[in-house]
Design a protein around this nucleic acid. Structure first.
Lengths: 329, 329
DNA sequence: ACGTTCTATGTAACCGGTTACATGAGCCAG
DNA sequence: CTGGCTCATGTAACCGGTTACATAGAACGT
């Protein structure tokens, strides 16, 4: 037995498909009698409308495509959660496609969205804007997240790394710290790049001494960075890691070496992962879920009035015990 | 300018839509000349096939619907990652729908999938099988994850909590531990329930002393549980927490009180979150991504040969420093 | 009584693909 | 030269909804 269609319902209710369609979509001009016969037929047949067919005839899918690169746990789940929250609020579904491979593979993934979704949220840090605009189906509204797009060709949302970094450096300067160390993230990561550049700029602006050491966003690289600095006998009174993981590694290594935090050395991270809160690390809170939420919001709103331009998503400094001895927990 | 359709391409290439369709789908019986004219027209018009229309006429979507409850970070991202990995391998997309609210809301979410996807992966711990089968569109292949379904009405995959717990208790017994404490998870959580029940059964089987204290999967509840036990002056030589978070809380609290781990008290968690590995906590590794991968696999394979029945996904004991003093880190 | 308006319903075209079947050209054997 | 075969191509129906337009019957005013 194949699935019941609207024509089956119409036949059973002894009405036309038009009337059935109108009844199911809550139009006014349907008699009470017809309505009853239709509801009866629907339940008897177990009829469920075919969303695909509906989309085709309405040219509207009530779905948003989400194209993400392979990204690590928390960021992924948080950004999707944010999108989902806003999507379900507005009655949209999310069509997910992870971009493992690059090149033609990526282009295909984007094309496969045509005719299934009303808009696209794309996060493709390793794709250039020219490649993107070549691969994106024409006329499919798209918004970019954390993707470099100087051209302003697409609406975009970025994390405002510079603002976050400035807040950190200003905070450290206000505490009287003079010699700052930045443990950078992986060099191919765009956020890591921006944080490093912003660090150097902010340090210069505050006329402090700044130094950058390499890291890779993993906890171990934070430990390694500190061990290296101590072996060198480097002097510093503050460490600003490009993410919380490395800040935790740095904290443990310093404490293990008998350095007092924050008295001798202040430590700041980035991201505000749950563990940072638990340990009490001063950090920059990135509301990732909000980023996703906002992207979906702008996209769906933009389906009506096309708003271009970039938007910066400001993070927020959270002061805890690794810079402020009075902070609790 | 509206989107180009296959008819536009046909007109431009001076051929019929049938020929264009055949050429685009790689049929043999298309002349070289036609093929060239079509490729030219396609690039000139920037034509991208309309996946929705294609699905309608093929009655095939190349998409799988994923319906999940609100679940916390790691579990969500891992399970989706696993599904996505397998999906993109097989050329499927994932249509995501989070089940925030229950009742009619949930039923609608399931219905909205009809005609968009070829199958459904459902994780709905708070929905009964009867509600589910009422809400699920008839004829849409579905597989259940971690959902109680005594009826065997749907194919299902469960995490084998009992096996994991038995491995833990056997391990502790082999180490000579006699008095075990289980810090349970939230009582409405099905995995937490199963772990608690299995703990009591395993302890009885090994003729050990077992006690259960309440927890809620958060780190703080692990700390609280231990504090309470110590206040009471309870005696125990092993703590088995229903997840790693609580195990970490327990570990910190015990160490802070000067109790030696593992010499005085052994500690075991569940899940194997990254932090557990870093700290060196003995735990039960749940390959969540594999669970998702397997669900998608079975679903897609089952689209051909309908295989019902339950499947248990076995976890694996990972022995680390909180039970074995010789284990490194 | 009649024309007008209103309302519920029906008919059929359309969304953008796929494909069964029809057609006509080219080729070869007899 | 003709019948039969192969093969590229075209025509039109179909997937399952929506909806512009047509229509019939009821209600209403004069």
């Amino acid at each position: 037995m194949a699935e019941a269609t609207i024509r089956d319902v119409a036949r059973r209710a002894q009405l036309s498909v038009a009337t059935v369609s109108r009844a199911l979509n809550g139009f006014e001009n349907v008699s009470e009698l017809a309505r009853e016969r239709i509801t009866a037929a629907v339940t008897e047949l177990g009829y469920v409308p075919h969303a695909g067919a509906r989309s085709l005839s309405l040219s509207r899918n009530n779905a948003i495509g989400v194209v993400l690169p392979d990204l690590h746990g928390e960021f992924f789940s948080e950004i999707v959660r944010g999108m989902d929250r806003e999507a379900s609020r507005r009655g949209y579904l999310l069509l997910l496609s992870n971009l493992h491979a690059g090149g033609a593979q990526a282009a295909n993934a984007l094309r496969a969205m045509r005719g299934r979704v009303d808009g696209l949220i794309v996060m493709a840090p390793h794709l250039g804007v020219d490649e993107l605009s070549a691969a994106l189906p024409r006329g499919l509204p798209s918004i970019l997240i954390n993707t470099r797009d100087g051209s302003g060709q697409f609406p975009a949302i970025h994390l405002d790394n510079a603002a976050g970094v400035r807040a950190v450096v200003d905070h450290l300067a206000a505490l009287g710290r003079k010699r700052l160390v930045h443990i950078a993230g992986p060099s191919e990561n765009i956020d890591a790049q921006e944080r490093e550049v912003a660090f150097l700029a902010a340090v210069a602006a505050q006329r402090l001494h700044g130094r950058v050491v390499a890291g890779d966003f993993e906890m171990e690289s934070g430990e390694a960075a500190i061990r290296q600095l101590m072996t060198e006998g480097a002097r510093f009174d503050a460490v600003f890691a490009a993410n919380d993981n490395m800040a935790i590694g740095a904290l443990e290594t310093l404490r293990a070496a008998g350095v007092r935090v924050p008295e001798d050395v202040a430590i700041v991270g980035f991201d505000d992962i749950p563990l940072a809160r638990h340990i009490g690390i001063t950090t920059v809170r990135v509301r990732i879920a909000e980023l996703g939420e906002r992207a979906l919001q702008r996209l769906v709103d933009g389906l009506i009035e096309d708003g271009g331009g970039d938007e910066l998503h400001a993070p927020e400094l959270v002061i805890r015990a690794t810079t402020d001895p009075k902070a609790n927990g």
